[in-house]
Nucleic acid binder design. Structure first.
Length: 626
RNA sequence: CGGAGUGUAGCGCAGCUUGGUAGCGCAUCUGGUUUGGGACCAGAGGGUCGUAGGUUCGAAUCCUAUCACUCCGACCA
């Protein structure tokens, strides 16, 4: 009998983990198929087939290093090298050694199972793609040097695929003819290549990487939205099963456009993106996107007269605060940017509070502001305003001003006087000058109210491991991918696109789960579940007999076991197993056998625990969640 | 692409200023002693000093070019 259908039938419900995304997975709980009854016996039994198998350490490549290679910057890169999971072949290119590949395969398997469960169909497309398709979509020109292009012996042009919209759209326009075949969702787990300007952080930002990409096809945006929601749920299931602390966050739809887009971020201090999320709701967004609400309440009444002060040494907000003892929230930064054609002036002044940062995305969406956002140079604006960058402000500003919501709420504030070396203090809107146009101009900061009205925002770093978004008809239109509708008329398909950086998930799991001794794998993706560490395996017949027996018993029970039968001293074995990050360790010794016990230690535990030999399976069943 | 830096044994590094023909620790192999937290002793193997050219009696060392890698920045469906 083929194994594959058995697998599907025997799948357990995804394990709900309380540790990750508290409360988030309840959102839009979509049931794609009736839940199957959980049958522990079948699960356990079948798991034997699902496991990657057990190994004896003496016959396995344990490529641990004592010292950290000098070019490894982030912790996941260092530990992946030290634990012998990967080795660098060239910049941004890595070998996966056996130990690392096991984890990669386990992540892949979880992704595959959950994608299959959602009803998506697995395909495999070529890594090398013909230029013709990219020319059809227009991306042959659009995509910069990040697209690795090459020629074959016949001088035809190809690229190494960084993504597969063109190929899948081409495939579907040939195969799918009728609305009756929709909706449909196709995915692959494949090697991608992006010729990054600067690969770094090891597997986190390599040039070649493994990605799960899925593309869905629809007639109508409602159907697209339904599959989008299903993928949103599927991604939550996947990252919960992997065992990561993550957040789905609202993301910029970027150059593709479309209605909505979510990125899935693993929270880790080494992340490259800032994520803002509410402390009391499921709101989360890329900091670039999070709306900065107006401060609550009324503007405070004026208590000072506006007065001009000589500030020859205050070129920056920091100087102003230091030299003139002004609270930073009472200062205003004035930034001059190029104006759009709609504006009668060449420039526009954008005002944010001294302690806030301009959000360029928000600014360039304003009608009066030229996109892309371009800061004006002092040479350009000095003739118009008559002052340099350190002395700008709203009072007597000859060009249109747009002020941030927080600026609009300020009173008694200080700002440049548009005269070199002078600032006004005690400025108040309405009394000293008219309040100009108000807009959301700034990045949110820690402690701001959440845009959904519930709670306040925290900001943490995140590693993007997944991204889902709606492509709409961009590619179906470019490539002419149509189906016939009920009336026999050709209609362009709507498309969605859903990616997971599979190899990056491995690195991000380490970023989130490690200590000074090494990696601490979540059970679900650990290369081995249990490290069996016999002491004196080569000398003691009792130890050897028991270790061999337990090795078989644990395999029977469905665990992936690494039996460390190497002729090494105990300290070496312990250190290696901890560095590699095997989450459960069982030590077998003559001393223990005499007392009828084994020693159990979870990777995060600080103390060993003696357990009766016949209690091992029960203990592991209790400690291990797979 | 701009800025900075590094290339010496599998890994981490010294040697370079002041040229004299390569060394340390870890790892590996052999023998012995050890054996509950990365052992010890004795011995061994392993290097075109990134590459090419130049200066010199002589270059890891000085000069020139070049390649690779790393870091910071710009970039990132």
């Amino acid at each position: 009998m083929p194994l594959w259908p058995c697998r599907i039938r025997a799948q357990p419900e995804p394990i709900q983990r309380q540790t990750a995304v508290q409360g988030l997975q309840v959102r839009n709980r979509l049931v794609c198929r009736p839940p199957r009854p959980y049958n522990g016996a079948i699960f356990r039994n079948i798991f034997r087939f699902l496991g990657l198998g057990s190994m004896r350490a003496s016959q396995y490549l344990i490529a641990t290093l004592k010292e950290t290679p000098s070019d490894a910057e982030v912790i996941s890169h260092q530990l992946m090298l030290r634990a012998g999971l990967i080795r660098k072949v060239a910049s941004g290119l890595y070998n996966w050694l056996p130990m690392g590949l096991r984890t990669l395969r386990k992540v892949e398997r979880i992704v595959r199972e959950e994608m299959d469960r959602s009803g998506a169909q697995e395909v495999l497309m070529p890594a090398i793609q013909p230029s013709e398709l990219w020319q059809e979509s227009g991306r042959w020109e659009q995509y910069g040097p990040e697209l690795l292009r090459l020629r074959d012996r016949n001088d035809r042009e190809f690229c190494v695929g960084p993504t597969h919209e063109e190929v899948i759209t081409d495939m579907i326009r040939r195969e799918v003819k009728s609305y009756k075949q929709l909706p449909a969702n196709f995915y692959q787990i494949q090697t991608k290549f992006r010729d990054e300007i600067r690969p770094r952080f090891g597997i986190m930002r390599s040039r070649e990487f493994i990605m799960k990409d899925a593309y869905s096809f629809h007639l109508g945006t409602e159907s697209l939205q339904a599959t989008y929601d299903l993928m949103y749920q599927t991604y939550n299931n996947i990252f919960n099963r992997v065992g990561l602390d993550f957040r789905p966050v609202l993301a910029d739809t970027g150059s593709i456009g479309g209605n909505s887009s979510h990125e899935f971020h693993v929270l880790a201090s080494s992340g490259e993106d800032d994520i803002a999320f509410s402390d009391s709701s499921d709101y989360a967004a890329n900091v670039e996107l999070a709306e900065a609400l107006a401060p609550a309440g009324e503007r405070a009444a004026a208590t000072m007269d506006m007065h001009l002060v000589d500030t020859p040494d205050a070129k920056t907000i920091a100087d102003l605060v230091k030299l003139h003892e002004t609270p930073i929230e009472k200062t205003i930064k004035t930034l001059i940017v190029r104006a759009s054609d709609e504006c009668e002036s060449d420039f526009v002044a954008l005002l944010v509070r001294g302690d806030h940062e301009l959000n360029e995305l928000k600014a360039e969406k304003l009608a009066l502001v030229a996109a892309p956002l371009t800061m004006a140079s002092e040479d350009e604006f000095r003739p118009v305003i008559g002052a340099g960058a350190g002395s700008l402000g709203p009072v007597n500003m000859p060009i249109p001003c747009i002020v941030d919501r927080a600026v609009a709420m300020a009173s008694d504030f200080g700002a440049g006087a548009n005269i070199d070396g002078k600032h006004y203090f005690g400025i108040n809107w309405g009394r000293d000058l008219e309040l100009p146009q108000v807009a959301d101009l700034r990045n949110v900061v820690e402690g701001d109210p959440s845009p959904d009205g519930q709670g306040t925002l925290s900001i943490r770093r995140g590693i993007e491991v997944g991204h889902i978004f709606q492509l709409g008809q961009k590619y179906s239109e470019a490539l002419g991918a149509t189906v016939l509708d009920e009336n026999g008329k050709a209609k362009l398909m709507d498309m969605g696109c859903y990616g997971i950086g599979v190899s990056r998930v491995v690195a991000s799991a380490i970023e989130q789960n490690h200590d000074e001794k090494g990696i601490i794998w979540p059970d679900a993706i650990a290369p081995f579940h249990v490290a069996l560490v016999p002491l004196n395996y080569d000398k003691s017949d009792d130890v050897k007999a028991l270790a061999d027996r337990l090795y078989l018993d644990l395999q029977q029970a469905g665990y992936d076991v690494l039996l460390d039968d190497r002729k090494e001293r105990p300290g070496v074995k312990f250190a290696d197993m901890e560095l590699i990050g095997i989450p459960h360790r069982v030590v077998i010794s003559d001393r223990g056998i005499a007392a009828g016990t084994l020693e159990y230690k979870g990777r995060r535990d600080s103390e060993n625990q003696d357990i009766a030999i016949d209690q091992l399976l029960a203990t592991l069943a209790d400690k291990l969640s797979i």
